[in-house]
Amino acid sequence: MRMDDYQQAALRTAAPRDKHNEVFHLLLGLVGETGEIAEKAKKIVRDRGSDFTRWDTGDLTKELGDALWYLAVLADHFGLSLEDIAAQNIAKLADRQSRGVLGGSGDDR
């Protein structure tokens, strides 16, 4: 599935853009879903000796999908396509790699 196809499909289940506080709702949803992923990772560290091979990948797939839904709808709210976001991100990372600055910190490396 193309990313833009996914984005259009996700929008079929999204609230209207003009719904009161919708951007805030989407931001909180994205943070909440990524928090759920982090919480499950914490439990692997705590209970399973950091053995991430024991992660329930079916559950992880569902949580990543929820995060992707919020990301897709939030991006659309600002007129951004997932494919454009992905392409720009890969180009940025390739540029950093070619300059030997993948590590470190800061957006403008």
Rank of each mutant, 00 (worst) to 15 (best):
D4C: 07
D4Y: 04
Y6W: 10
Q8K: 09
A9K: 12
A10H: 00
A10G: 01
A10I: 00
L11G: 04
T13G: 08
A15V: 04
P16C: 01
R17Q: 07
R17C: 02
N21F: 15
F24I: 12
H25L: 03
L27R: 12
L28M: 10
L30N: 03
G32M: 05
G32T: 04
E33C: 08
T34A: 13
G35D: 11
E36D: 12
E36S: 11
A38V: 15
A38S: 14
K40I: 04
K40P: 00
A41M: 15
I44W: 04
V45N: 04
V45T: 07
R46H: 05
R46M: 03
G49L: 02
G49H: 10
G49C: 05
S50H: 08
F52M: 09
R54T: 15
W55I: 14
G58D: 13
D59C: 02
L60Q: 05
K62H: 05
K62P: 01
E63G: 09
L64A: 13
G65M: 05
D66K: 10
D66M: 05
A67G: 05
W69Q: 07
L71M: 10
L71C: 06
A72D: 12
L74F: 04
L74R: 02
A75C: 14
H77F: 13
I85C: 09
I85S: 03
I85D: 03
A86F: 07
A86N: 11
I90E: 10
A91L: 08
K92Q: 09
L93Y: 13
A94C: 12
G100P: 11
V101I: 12
L102Y: 10
G104H: 05
S105Y: 05
S105R: 10
D107H: 14
D108Q: 05
D108R: 10
R109V: 01
